[in-house]
Simulated scan of single mutants.
Amino acid sequence: MAVGSDRRTTDQGPLLSVVLPAYNEAGNVGPMAARLAEILSADRSDAFARFEIVFVDDCSKDGTLAELRRLAAADPRVRYVSFTRNFGHQSALRAGLRHARGDAVVLMDCDFEHPPELIPELLARWREGAKIVAAQRETAAGDVSAFKRLTSRLYYRLLDSIGDVRIEPGSADFLLLDRVVVDTINGFDDHDLFLRGLVRWLGYPLVKVPYRQGVRSEGESSYTLRRMIDLAVTGIIAHSVKPLRIAIHLALVFALIGVLLLVYSIVSFLAIGHTVAGWTSTMSAIAILGAGQFLVLGIIGEYIGRVLRETRNWPPFLVAETETSAAPPAAAGRETAPRRASVGS
């Protein structure tokens, strides 16, 4: 049977899956698994009847995979997926969704910045009928840096103005998804998915639950500025074609500037006569028009590059090992990955 195709059985009650991407989190996966087991075992309501904890190792360079093997051997409720190489946070989330078997799936980080104590409240909203429950970070002074608060606010404002979905500031990939939403997402074949935008684009009933960001237990965040920029660009391109239209407007603006500089040069020549001072205006025109051309080509090239990546039809990730496999060769990774669910199945 393909990984992830073993669905819950109704006579045992609903199953909850908690999916946690992990990259160099050897010191956090054990404490997080213990804390989740403590929280989910404390409440014996129907929503907590059964649960599984699914870690996704994004080809960590420390002892994360060895620790996951140990946890899975000690507790059958702990499962894991390990990649052949580093595919990124969004791919890890997708792998977790395809590996998870629950009626409801919680996505969260395993470094304790997403507090596991919030899960009971997420489940309460799910039991009330919400298909998507999004945790929204309430930022207080000292929780995150002023630079991150400012850039996050500006980014979501930009995405709100040019995108086809609205994502509230403070949103993250800390979500609870109903099985119908999980199956729908698993049916998408796009190489680049911006999950927090996609779940809002789907249109299923969504409620928000506020939370205060927790404190990382151990280690340092691997989410560098470059990764944040890559995610921001993916979010814009995945949910908007307006930058292409903006490129056309920019081209017209720079063309107008070029015409004005040409008029200025002609008027200067006729009014002043022969002059060598035209070097400044010439270099200004070349610099302005050159910058405009490179900007427009860059925007178009970003879209074309992503179209090329989609037409290749390469898998978004390759699985090297799961808790049920014996670390097959990397070439077999695609076959060990869970079967993609059809849309709405």
Rank of each mutant, 00 (worst) to 15 (best):
D103Y: 03
A134R: 06
V3Y: 14
I288N: 04
G235Y: 12
I300E: 11
A337R: 08
L175T: 01
E25Y: 08
A330S: 10
L225R: 14
E218R: 14
T184S: 10
G278P: 00
R226D: 09
P116Y: 09
I299D: 05
T234M: 13
E321G: 00
D43V: 04
E323Y: 00
L261V: 03
A232T: 02
F48T: 02
R340Y: 09
L93F: 08
A49N: 09
Y155G: 07
R137L: 00
Y156D: 04
T139V: 12
Q136D: 02
E218L: 08
A47L: 14
G278Q: 15
D192Q: 08
T282A: 12
D183E: 15
F51L: 01
L71C: 01
L107T: 03
G203H: 05
L195E: 05
L198H: 05
G344Y: 01
I162N: 02
G187L: 02
R340K: 15
M228Q: 15
F48N: 14
V241W: 08
A92D: 03
D192M: 15
R8M: 11
V81Y: 02
D46L: 13
H191W: 10
G4R: 12
G344H: 00
R7T: 10
E321M: 01
A124D: 09
V19T: 12
E168P: 03
F254K: 06
S41I: 00
L93S: 01
V215W: 08
V19S: 07
M228R: 15
Y264V: 03
E117P: 00
I119D: 08
G4K: 09
F112N: 11
R8N: 11
M1H: 13
I246Y: 13
A37I: 01
R157M: 05
G273T: 10
Y264P: 01
G30L: 04
V207G: 05
L289M: 15
C59D: 10
R44M: 07
L123M: 15
N86F: 11
I229R: 09
R340N: 11
A146C: 02
E323F: 00
P328R: 13
L158E: 08
L16H: 06
R137H: 00
G258L: 14
G278V: 00
D143W: 04
I272Q: 04
P243T: 02
V209K: 04
S82D: 04
S161N: 07
K61D: 10
F317D: 05
I53R: 09
L195S: 02
R212D: 03
K131G: 02
Y156W: 13
M32H: 02
D57W: 06
N24K: 10
T234Y: 11
D11T: 12
R309G: 04
V56K: 10
V56L: 07
V133K: 07
P243R: 05
I288P: 08
T9V: 14
Y264K: 13
G163N: 06
G258W: 06
A341L: 14
H191K: 12
F48M: 12
S152C: 07
